[in-house]
């Protein structure tokens, strides 16, 4: 690997990459559950499209994670053959979809973070990270534009849509803090210049979120409590079921080629 990677513990680097890839994998999984079930045809298309982008990004992040780890694991191995406690996604993305408003609110809150994160990653010391970030950022810019627009229109829509979006925001809020709360992995990768200072990402995230929520006539919850755990492998009960679905064929027919 390159110089920067030598300075940081490879395990920390690989773990950080898994966090990126697991977020996109699990969120992509959740979005794909809407296929054929969303409120209008255009949303079916948009949901599938976003899920597809996220799965594509997963292949890149987890592929690189496997290389950095150096144990010969592919992106598929990582996605299909790890158990829940080895997954490093934030809790937010594994929670059930709820109604379409909850799905959209989660998407907006995640997209705003994802966009800020990828923007910072354009100046990572690692070339491979910069490449993936540049590709992903093009897609995520569109995701954010779309989810922010829908949050605004539904927040400032009918009485019912407003109430649902506010309820969705209140419900998701305690799961947003984990995105921008640094731990030792974040600190180590930031010190090596691979990843940005998460607090900085958090500040940009907060600005975007406040601006959009204001336009949506929604009020930012004043609670600062944040659920933590996903990034270190302590998940909700929901992840096990996601994996039971996702990994079924690989587990039931080990070694088969599909």
């Amino acid at each position: 690997m390159e110089a920067a990677a030598d300075q940081v513990d490879r395990t920390a680097y690989a773990t950080w990459l898994m966090r990126m890839g697991d977020n996109t994998l699990i969120l992509g999984h959740r979005l794909s559950e809407w296929c054929g079930h969303s409120p209008v045809l255009e949303e079916d298309i948009a949901m599938a499209n976003t899920a597809l982008d996220l799965i594509g990004q997963t292949q890149l992040w987890l592929g690189l994670a496997g290389e950095v780890e150096g144990a010969g694991r592919t992106a598929d191995n990582l996605a299909y053959l790890r158990d829940a406690s080895k997954f490093r996604n934030v809790l937010m993305v594994e929670r059930p979809n709820g109604d379409f408003g909850q799905t959209l609110m989660r998407q907006f809150l995640f997209d705003a973070w994802h966009h800020a994160m990828l923007t910072e990653l354009l100046t990572s010391t690692e070339e491979r990270v910069r490449e993936i970030a540049a590709k992903a950022l093009k897609e995520v810019s569109y995701h954010l534009e779309r989810s922010a627009d829908l949050v605004i229109r539904l927040g400032d829509g009918s009485e019912e849509s407003h109430a649902r979006m506010q309820a969705a925001l209140d419900d998701q809020w305690a799961y947003t803090g984990e995105l921008s709360t640094p731990d030792e992995i974040d600190t180590a990768t930031a010190a090596a210049g691979i990843a940005p200072d998460l607090a900085k990402v958090g500040t940009v995230w907060r600005q975007t979120v406040e601006e959009v929520l204001r336009a949506a006539t929604l009020s930012v919850p004043d609670s600062t409590f944040a659920h933590q755990g996903g990034k270190s492998g302590r998940h909700t009960e929901h992840l096990g079921y996601i994996l039971a679905d996702m990994q079924f064929l690989q587990r039931a027919y080990p070694g088969a080629v599909w």
Partner: peptide, 12 residues
């Protein structure tokens, strides 16, 4: 289930 979504967009 999506009626509120469509109505919300119309209201906006």
């Amino acid at each position: 289930d999506g009626a509120w979504f469509r109505e919300g967009l119309m209201a906006h």
